[in-house]
């Protein structure tokens, strides 16, 4: 059986969705409360990393294929940069050209909410990719070690 025990798997299945929702909340309210794109992105990535730890990489990649993660990784960074470029229309790089908002209103901070979402995509997918790359490396070197032992 791949992955960890049934208890871990069941609990992971139960919890992973909530972790993603919590991460999304941290991202969306990043400009009002502590948190933001990076923290939220890490939390979302943690949900997928938890899946990978409990079920093995196949299940995690079926939820978030590697190619999709790569696209999200680059697209998030590009979106961030694109918003910065958009500010150039107002004369300055990263100019908050939608106007400064009011305190404690969700849709009020101009560029900051889209920037947070872009960062969340970038961070979440790249953290997942880093973890999966390390896991794949490690498994390969582990296999090489066993082959050395046998030979």
């Amino acid at each position: 059986m791949k992955g960890m025990t049934l208890i871990v798997k069941t609990i992971t299945d139960f919890v992973a969705g909530f972790i993603v929702i919590f991460g999304a909340y941290i991202v969306l309210y990043g400009h009002l409360t502590p948190g933001g794109g990076f923290a939220g992105g890490v939390i979302v990535a943690c949900a997928f990393i938890l899946l990978m730890l409990a079920h093995g990489s196949d299940v995690a990649f079926s939820k978030l294929p590697e190619k999709v993660a790569h696209v999200m990784d680059s697209a998030g960074a590009l979106a961030f940069l694109g918003i910065g470029w958009f500010g150039m229309t107002m004369g300055f790089f990263f100019m908050n050209s939608f106007g400064r908002g009011e305190m404690f209103k969700l849709f009020s901070s101009g560029m900051i909410l889209p920037l947070n979402i872009a960062v969340a995509f970038k961070v979440g997918s790249s953290l997942f990719l880093v973890f999966s790359a390390l896991a794949i490396f490690r498994r390969r070197s582990f296999r090489a070690m066993i082959e050395d032992e046998l030979a």
């Binding site: 790569h70 960074a77 590009l78 940069l81």
Partner: peptide, 19 residues
């Protein structure tokens, strides 16, 4: 700012298209 923005954009577009 373009001196930073242009290569940064290229650095992310290249792997995106590279897929």
């Amino acid at each position: 700012p373009l001196f930073v923005a242009v290569p940064l954009a290229a650095a992310f577009i290249i792997p995106l298209l590279g897929i």
